[in-house]
Amino acid sequence: MVTEPDFTVDLSKPLVFQVGHLGDGYQEWVHQPIVGKVGPRLFASDILEFLTLTAWWVIPVVWLPVVCYFVSRSLLMGHSPREVSIMVVTGIFIWTLVEYILHRFVFHIKTKSYWANTAHYLIHGCHHKHPMDGLRLVFPPAAAAILSIPFYYLVLFCSTPSTAPGLFGGGLLGYVMYDCTHYYLHHGQPKTNPARHLKRYHLNHHFKIQTLGFGITSSLWDNMFGTYPPQKLAPEKIM
């Protein structure tokens, strides 16, 4: 699909069902950020619009009790606190790789058809177009809950019934850390490292070179896979 002749996205109207019409011009459009703390309207429906909005604090409130539940299951199945601690740390470590893979190969997939552009915009494109939209920086819990089910069964398949809860709880804790860190990197003003370094590293990804810098909580995998962006590109403070 090519860009429809003379088509222009009207930012004053709901965006989701407009962006698909950009065709192969969508990638260029979505990576030209609009910096502002007030986000756009995505849907004409008030219900659908509400479901896209999530305050950052909802993530720990919803998911930390779930983390505790899964971790406690491994304890109740006979594992020692030391063993469960290792499971949790391992789960967090695995999450950092999942985070990198999702961001690089799913969130930044190239699209040009109407429905592919629309889906990409919903998943990640809206964040790149409006990176300071504070209510669309974290993943809505309902959607995350649906996606967590296959992840749990994958962990169960790769481990044992007694270790899977601890590993999954650790991975879920890694996700909570990821979403909260992501919000802070956009809206916080860290004065010291490593947070200051992570903010500059992430802003480089948004405002200078979107094809590099896919880690959020860590630059480990970018360093390992050669996708670490050049330093000192982006400003530390984006208003």
Rank of each mutant, 00 (worst) to 15 (best):
L22S: 01
I238L: 14
P190H: 13
T90K: 11
I92V: 15
N204V: 09
S74V: 11
P65F: 06
F157P: 00
G188D: 11
F157K: 11
V9C: 09
G226E: 12
F107V: 07
E49S: 07
G170H: 14
P14M: 03
S148F: 03
Y100R: 03
L51Q: 01
G134Y: 13
G188Y: 13
L203Y: 14
Q32K: 15
P194K: 01
S148N: 03
S72P: 01
A145F: 12
T52N: 03
V2C: 00
Q18N: 04
T54R: 00
K232P: 00
I59C: 04
D6H: 15
V62D: 00
R73K: 14
E83A: 13
P60T: 04
C126R: 13
T227M: 14
C126L: 13
N204K: 03
Q189I: 07
G23K: 06
T227W: 13
L154H: 04
K191Y: 05
L167I: 13
F70R: 04
T192Y: 07
K129W: 05
S74Q: 11
K191F: 06
L51I: 03
L147A: 14
G213L: 05
L220C: 09
Q189D: 12
L137C: 06
L97N: 03
E49F: 09
R136N: 04
K199C: 06
A195G: 00
L167T: 11
A195C: 04
C180Q: 15
A234F: 03
W95N: 07
D133N: 14
T211F: 08
I59E: 07
M1P: 09
G169Q: 12
T160W: 05
S162Y: 10
I47F: 15
F214S: 06
K112W: 10
V58D: 01
